[in-house]
C-alpha cells in the first residue's frame, strides 16, 4: 500500500503500486494545502485592486458630478478655495499623448515591419534586444535623456513637446511588440498569394499584411496611450504644472493630470484633497477607457 510505511527499512523498494487505497496522508494534505494557498494568492491579489479602485471612486466622484470639473481650469483657485476644474490638465494630457502617438506609432510600426518582414541576422537581433531594453527603461531615465538633449544641449524650455518626446520612448516598445505579434500571425499564404499576383513586396505589406493585422496594431496603440498618460516622471523633469489652460506645446508650462494630482498632494487642505482624488479618478477613468477600448478591439481581431 502506498501509505509510505514509516518503517526505517530502506532496502526494499516500497510497494508503491500495491493497491487502490487512498493517498498517503501527507501527500493529500500537501495537495489540499497547496490548493488553498493558490486560491488565496489570487484572492490576495484582488484585495489591492478593489481597495484602490474603491478608495479613488468613493473619494473622487463628488467633484466629477459637477460639470465645471470638465469645463474649467484651476486658474486663480488657491488650495483653500473650492471650485475650478480639470479641463486644463485633461487637455494637456490628451494633447501630449496625441503628439507622442503621432511620432511613436510610425516609428514603432516600421520597426515591427522590419523585425517581421525584413530583419535577419545581427541587426534584427540587436533591434529586438533594444526594444526589450526600451521596454524596461525607467521613465525617469527617459525623461533625463530628453532633458539632456532638449534643455541642456539645445537650450530649449521645459514644455509640453519635450514631455511628448520622453513619452515617445516609452510608447515605442509597447506598440512594436503588439504590432510584431500581429504581423507574425498573418499567414504566409496571404503574402505568397499576393507575390504570385506580381504585387511587389512593399505593396504586399502595405495593402495585405498591415490591414490584416490592423486591429491588433490599434490595440497596441491604445494600450501604449494608456501607459504613457499615467506617466508622472517625465512631467516632473520636463513639464512644470500650470493652473491655467495652455494649448501650446512649445510655449510655457502645460498642465497634465498626473502633475495636477502631484500639485494637490502637498496641500493639507480639504478642497485640495478633494481635487487630488477627483483628478486621480479622472486619470484612472481615462486610462481604463483606453484599456477597455484596446481590449474590445482585440476581441474583434481575435475572430479574424
Amino acid at each position: 500500500m502506498s501509505t509510505v510505511t514509516s518503517s526505517t527499512e530502506p532496502s526494499a523498494v516500497p510497494s508503491v503500486g500495491g493497491g487502490l487505497s487512498g493517498l498517503s496522508r501527507g501527500r493529500s494534505v500537501t495537495n489540499s494545502i497547496m490548493t488553498v494557498v493558490v486560491y488565496a494568492a489570487f484572492l490576495l491579489a484582488l484585495v489591492p485592486l478593489a481597495w484602490i479602485l474603491w478608495t479613488v471612486l468613493s473619494r473622487g466622484y463628488g467633484l466629477l458630478m459637477d460639470q465645471n470639473w470638465w469645463l474649467t481650469s484651476q486658474r486663480g483657485i488657491t488650495p483653500r478655495r473650492v471650485g475650478g476644474g480639470a479641463y486644463h490638465a485633461i487637455l494637456g494630457t490628451l494633447v501630449q499623448a496625441a503628439v507622442c502617438a503621432l511620432i511613436a506609432v510610425p516609428i514603432a510600426v516600421f520597426t515591427a515591419i522590419y523585425l517581421v518582414e525584413y530583419g535577419r541576422g545581427k541587426l534584427a537581433r540587436a533591434v529586438s534586444f533594444m526594444v526589450d531594453i526600451l521596454t524596461g527603461i525607467p521613465s525617469i531615465v527617459a525623461a533625463l535623456f530628453i532633458y539632456a538633449v532638449w534643455v541642456t544641449t539645445f537650450g530649449f524650455q521645459r514644455v509640453g513637446f519635450a514631455v511628448s518626446l520622453a513619452l515617445v520612448m516609452l510608447m515605442i516598445p509597447v506598440v512594436v511588440r503588439s504590432t510584431e505579434e500581429m504581423l507574425k500571425l498573418v499567414p504566409n499564404e496571404l503574402r505568397e498569394a499576393s507575390y504570385a499576383l506580381g504585387v511587389p513586396k512593399w505593396k504586399t505589406i502595405a495593402r495585405i499584411v498591415i490591414p490584416t493585422a490592423l486591429s491588433g496594431i490599434i490595440t497596441g496603440v491604445l494600450l501604449g496611450l494608456a501607459r504613457v498618460m499615467g506617466e508622472t516622471a517625465p512631467l516632473l523633469i520636463l513639464g512644470p504644472y500650470s493652473a491655467s489652460i495652455n494649448t501650446s506645446l512649445v510655449d510655457g508650462p502645460m498642465a497634465a493630470l498626473p502633475t495636477m494630482i502631484k500639485d494637490n498632494f502637498g496641500q493639507a487642505l480639504q478642497p485640495a484633497t478633494d481635487r487630488l482624488w477627483a483628478s486621480a479618478l479622472t486619470l484612472i477613468l481615462l486610462v481604463l477607457l483606453l484599456n477597455g477600448a484596446g481590449r474590445v478591439v482585440a476581441r474583434f481581431s481575435a475572430v479574424r
Partner: peptide
Amino acid sequence: AGLRLNGVKTKAVLAEAVER
C-alpha cells in the same frame, strides 16, 4: 520521478529501482 512522488527519498533505493 514516480517513486519520489511517493515519498521514496533513499538514494540507494532509488538507484536500485532506476537500474531495475
